[in-house]
């Protein structure tokens, strides 16, 4: 009887652990990603993005990358408006 109860407890724990380890989590697994560098070329004229002319529009053809007015954030500042 005592043994049966012990078995029940242990199998409960085993199942709980299994379930915790194998169940899918909301939002999925987080796959560790390495740091990377990228660039968004102008989709209209194909030019790279120039620093002097800001972040919001293409320095060469005026294509609008972003329709917003940048404010003073963390790394992005007002000066980065085109």
């Amino acid at each position: 009887m005592a043994e049966e109860k012990d078995n029940k407890l242990l199998s409960y724990l085993e199942r709980l652990k299994q379930q915790a380890a194998t169940q899918q989590h909301y939002g999925g697994d987080i796959t560790p990603e390495k740091a990377k560098m990228d660039m968004r070329d102008c989709p209209k004229c194909g030019a790279g993005r120039a620093f002097e002319k800001g972040l919001t529009a293409c320095a060469y053809c005026g294509f609008v990358f972003m329709e917003v007015k940048l404010t003073d954030g963390i790394n992005i500042k007002k000066e980065n408006n085109s």
């Binding site: 968004r40 972040l55 990358f65 972003m66 917003v68 940048l70 954030g73 963390i74 790394n75 992005i76």
Partner: peptide, 15 residues
């Protein structure tokens, strides 16, 4: 959808 690029969104998402 917000008309911005990801780095801009991430700053707003932090601030």
């Amino acid at each position: 959808a917000l008309g911005v690029e990801v780095p801009v969104w991430q700053e707003a998402n932090l601030l």
